[in-house]
Amino acid sequence: MLEAHNLHVWFGAGADKFHAVKDASFSISQGESFGLVGESGSGKSTILKAIIGLAENWTGHLTVDGETLGKKRNRNFYSKVQMVFQDPYASLHPRHTVDRCLSEPLRMRKTSNIDARINQSLNDVGLDPTYRFRYPHQLSGGQRQRVAIARTLIQDAKFLLLDEPTSALDVSVQAEILNLLNDLKRQKGLTYLLVSHDLAVVSHMCDRIAIMQAGKIVETIDKQMLRTATTETDYAAALISASHGFKRSTSQI
């Protein structure tokens, strides 16, 4: 589904140039869930931005579904690839109803039977049709994230870029959204690229995981290796042990 070779992304120029992603290479096959983990500033979200076309300065080879990506993305690309952002409170237009938010991409692409498709997509993400004419502020965080997911599905996207989709949500709501994503993946054969700092979430969702540090992919491991903490690099081991909660014994030395 996705091939990335020697991907470099940077921001700014001259003395202010910041090299956010350095020489990242990975590939994701159809129907797979791939995870990117790392601390903030390690460049995991930047990779998503480069793929979706929100970061302009990049070099390397990006291929999505057999199509090599250039500087510009065409409309056809966005019907295949869509992104879900971290903060559902910020990623929906506050003055647009759910209906408008979902119908806009369809009207842009001059699709027919908009009405039926909106109802279908709301149904897919487990939202009652009565929510269709509500504004984002009338919805809870979990419901907003469902709308954001519905917005990607309504365009029949097959490849979703998920940027920390549950980090702004409570654990109980997080469970609902993760289950929803897994169900949708099974029903529709979706491919996910999930960014998260929560290793437990990544191990629940993803088949293979790339660990990033300071812009580089330091290690790519699979789900089983993450669970048993079989890693080659010290950084990956430190990251896994840090996510096991606070241990008093280490601090008493």
Binding site: A175, A200, S203, L226, I240, S243, H244
Partner: peptide, 20 residues
């Protein structure tokens, strides 16, 4: 119990997370 169970876990993976 519901809050605890809804957490995904590294050690004890489950196919579907129980919902509160």
């Amino acid at each position: 119990r519901g809050l605890l169970n809804s957490l995904p876990s590294l050690q004890n993976p489950s196919e579907k997370l129980p919902i509160l």
